[in-house]
Amino acid sequence: MPRKQFEANVRYRPGGVAMIDLNGEIDGFAKETLAAAYGEAEKGKPEAILLDFEGVDYINSTGIALIVGLLARARASKRRLLACGLSEHYAEIFEITRLSDFVGVFPDEESALARVANS
């Protein structure tokens, strides 16, 4: 079965937010790309980093572990980690794993950026 190559692109948004657009499958193969994108996003010393899952169609338990790793990095540098664009299924998995207790989950980019701007 051909794999979709995982991609992550960093965009800098107004209000001190770095946004990482995620595309493909978040599993063990995504580790290096995800870590590199997060490192790139950190360079601008943003107040918050927003992960956009709109282009993600698969996350497995290793992918959950990678997201936990990003959250640990964000907490260590006192930076907020946000998520948007999760499907209903993966939003439920964020709740089951309690990731949503620590990661602000929003339906889309606009609502996430509005929350940062108003806080």
Partner: peptide
Amino acid sequence: RLEGRESPRGWGLFL
């Protein structure tokens, strides 16, 4: 796991 006291892996059976 966030504090590094446990491996971040091991979600499979729970899921």
